[in-house]
Every structure is written in C-alpha cells, then in structure tokens.
C-alpha cells in the first residue's frame, strides 16, 4: 500500500541505505509515519495500516521505486475452470521510463510474471498463460494520455523544485562515487568526501522537510 508521498520517501531511504546510515533510515521512516498520522486524507484504520506498513520498509523495499507506479488499473478475474487472470495496464509513466532506460524497468514486471507463472514474458509478448498453474497474465497498452488521479498526485509531489534539486545533486554525487569506485585506482579519500557530502545533502533536505 502506497501513499503518493511514499515514493519520495522510498527514494530518500534508498540514498540512506546506500550510505549505510541506519539512523537516517529510521528518521525518514518516522517522518513518513508522522506525515501519515497528520494527513486528513486517511481514516484512522487506514492510518494504522499505513503506519504498520512503514515498519516493513527495508533496503530491498527502497530499491526499484519507479516501477511501483508503473502498473495501472489491475483487474483480477477467475473463471469456472479456476484459471486466474490478472490484467495490468502499462501506465504512461512506465512507457516513459522504459523509453528512457530501455527494458530495465520492464524487467520488474518480467520478474513478477516469472514468479507467478514459472515462465518469463518475452520482450514483445503482451500475454502469458500457464494452464498447469491455472494463471494468465496480460499486459494491456495504456489509453493515450491516461493518468490516474493517484499518478497525477505522485507527479505533482515528484516535481516539487526542492525535491528535484535534491535529486539532481544526489544523482550527481552517487554517479561520481560509482565512477571513482569503479576506477582502477580508486581515490578512497575523495570517495569518503563525496559520501559525506551526500549524507549532508540528505540531512539538510530532511531538516527542510521538518521546518
């Protein structure tokens, strides 16, 4: 279960995980819980469920944030023979992300399909059916220009200038750390400096969120 703001927090937590700063991970989770508890958009039951869900956010949850908003309007049906059919519409956002990063984002959907059916979905396939497991999964093309209200809200949050500025700086630092770490003779002192800058950037962003 995701609130629109969760995606933003997952990205921040992902940075904290890369920095191996578990204190910061907890601070970010607490901040997300605080936002949920103060939100007028959820019932008390929903708040409790969401706050419990935040407890389970870990390093693996924080990875692959973008594909979480890539599936749209899932439909689940079961016929008289017991075949379960799941139809997921590829979202406009997913289309953009796949366009930007080739098939990497689609790989998440492929993993999902393989876990359920035991067979990978070929690159061009829109459908897979495994009679032995009684499951069929279909990927529906999006309607032109279709965004759900949820996705619109997510996009508005992601587009916040302060968050975008944070991402621009953090992506640069992460890329530079990766480039130096992969070089033949890594400059450990410079890598450490950049890691410190990255941590300070995240802490500064968190402080601004709290003020």
């Amino acid at each position: 279960m995701l609130t629109p703001n969760t995606l933003k927090y997952l990205r921040l937590i992902y940075a904290a995980v890369q920095l191996e700063d578990l204190t910061l991970v907890d601070e970010l989770k607490n901040k997300l819980k605080e936002e949920i508890s103060q939100s007028p958009n959820f019932s008390e039951d929903d708040k409790l469920a969401l706050e419990n869900a935040v407890q389970f956010i870990g390093p693996e949850t924080a990875k692959f944030t973008v594909p979480r908003i890539c599936g749209n309007k899932p439909e689940v049906t079961i016929n008289s023979e017991g075949t379960l059919t799941i139809t997921v519409e590829e979202s406009e956002i997913h289309r953009m992300v796949v366009g930007m990063f080739s098939q990497e984002a689609l790989a998440q959907f492929q993993k999902f399909v393989k876990d359920l059916t035991g067979t990978g979905l070929s690159e061009d396939a829109q459908e897979i059916h495994n009679p032995e497991r009684g499951i069929q999964i279909s990927l529906r093309s999006p309607e032109p220009n279709s965004l759900t209200n949820y996705q619109e809200r997510v996009i508005q949050l992601i587009k916040e200038p302060a968050f975008q500025n944070y991402l621009a700086q953090d992506n640069y630092l992460a890329a530079e750390i990766a480039r130096l770490s992969n070089s033949d003779n890594p400059d450990q002192q410079r890598i450490q400096e950049l890691n410190t800058q990255r941590e300070n950037l995240l802490r500064q962003y968190l402080r601004n969120l709290q003020s």
Binding site: K63, E104, A105, Q169, A175
Partner: peptide, 27 residues
C-alpha cells in the same frame, strides 16, 4: 544550473525530467 533550467521547461518536459531524475540511481 541544470536544476534551475528544469524550471524553465514546458510542463511535459518538466514531468519527463522529474521522472528521469527519480529513476536515475533507483532502478
């Protein structure tokens, strides 16, 4: 500077770049 230029883009490109920045380093 690049982050500043982002605010001068048309809405569709602003959205695209916002998604691009989110996806970089996270997929």
């Amino acid at each position: 500077f690049d982050s500043f230029v982002q605010q001068r883009l048309s809405p569709k490109w602003k959205t695209f770049i916002a998604m691009h920045r989110l996806a970089t380093n996270s997929i």
